[in-house]
Computed example of a mutant assay.
Amino acid sequence: MVQNSSTFKAFRIEEIDGIYQGSVQEMDFGTLNNNEVLVKVHYSSLNYKDALSASGNKGVTRNYPHTPGIDAVGIIEKSNSDLYAVGEKVIVTSYDLGMNTDGGFAEYIQVPAEWAVKLPENITMKEAMIYGTAGLTAGMSVLRLTELIKPEDGKIAVSGATGGVGALSVSILSKLGYSVVAITGKETEWDYLMNLGAEEVLLRSEVENFAKKPLLKPLFADAIDTVGGVILENIIKSTNAIGVVTCCGNVASPKLDLTVFPFILRGVTLIGIDSQNYPMKYRKIVWNKLSQEWNPKQLNHTCNEIKLKDVGQKIELMLQGKLKGRTVVTLVE
């Protein structure tokens, strides 16, 4: 085993008098159980679920102190499993990582071996975390859309387009030849979205203010929605006949106020995306595609790199809706 210290650094969230506070602390190594691996983390990344965990959302994390971080990539330093050997590079995303199992905002993680995916040869560890759960979620959405829809079928809307899932969805779809309409609440990010590959940008307020009718004029062949609420409602109502909409988030609202008309009069299909418990068979398919034909040339344009000590500040900005793209946490100097 390579580790040469009895402790490691982690960004820990503590509950003190009802207030949740984060700081970098020294942690002791635990005992490695059967079928577990110890991974030296090289990179992690910041997701909205991490921000919720860090602010005390009990729907994400029940017990504190806790280390958030639903994404990690690194090298196995100890293995009690036949699935992986010491020295292999692996990606660990979702499942319970960073929720009720200490996560990737740490120099080491200890997880069940079946949570890990071997790092594809065609991407670096940093690139894997630019993707992270956001990239996996975007990839799952693109996979479902491209099974049913071709570029010539029309425009694809992507909501929350400056966020992690949205930005990567825009980039991947553009590389595959689709015409993308990016929906955003940030008027200042026009150039950023066009550089990612969007052909058109709509303001969130425009979409929110579509007419309040059961069905609207068809505008999109398909869509990837990352926010939920009124935006998702109006996208569904504005989707072409036999169109497909995927949904993966609820930052705007978990509620939908719809009639069945888009589904029974236009045959629109709504597909839910669950990256947390996505079957391993399909995880491997998506990761391989992300490392090869889906790998967008603009990948690094979606990334900001920080160190462990900066995580708390970035979490605050994320909760205020002031981050764009992906934030990658470097754990190895």
Rank of each mutant, 00 (worst) to 15 (best):
V111F: 12
L145E: 05
K40A: 13
N300R: 06
N240V: 02
M194D: 04
N33C: 06
L203T: 10
E200P: 00
G267V: 04
A51L: 02
S174L: 07
A167Q: 11
K126S: 00
I271D: 03
L119T: 07
A223S: 13
S23F: 09
D257P: 00
Y95H: 14
G18S: 08
V332G: 04
A223M: 07
A51G: 12
K9Q: 14
S253D: 12
K175N: 03
R144Y: 09
V2T: 12
A51V: 01
N300T: 09
V170G: 05
K289T: 02
K217M: 09
L83C: 02
V37S: 13
N304E: 15
L52G: 02
I91W: 05
N122D: 14
M280A: 11
E233D: 15
N295M: 12
K175L: 07
F105V: 07
P120D: 11
V227M: 03
C303H: 09
S275H: 08
L32Y: 14
G98S: 05
G243H: 03
L148G: 01
Y278L: 11
M140L: 14
R12K: 10
N234P: 09
I224R: 03
V111L: 11
G177I: 12
L331R: 05
H301I: 04
N57R: 10
Q3H: 13
N234S: 07
P214L: 01
K237I: 01
K314P: 00
E199R: 12
N33Q: 15
T259S: 15
P279G: 00
I242C: 05
G132H: 02
S45Q: 08
G164H: 04
E187C: 00
L193K: 04
N209Y: 02
E147V: 00
L176C: 08
V41I: 14
G87C: 08
D274V: 03
G272S: 11
T259L: 06
G197T: 09
E15T: 01
P218S: 11
V111T: 11
E15W: 12
L119F: 08
E107D: 12
D17S: 15
V201F: 13
F8L: 10
N209K: 13
G321I: 12
Q320N: 11
N47L: 05
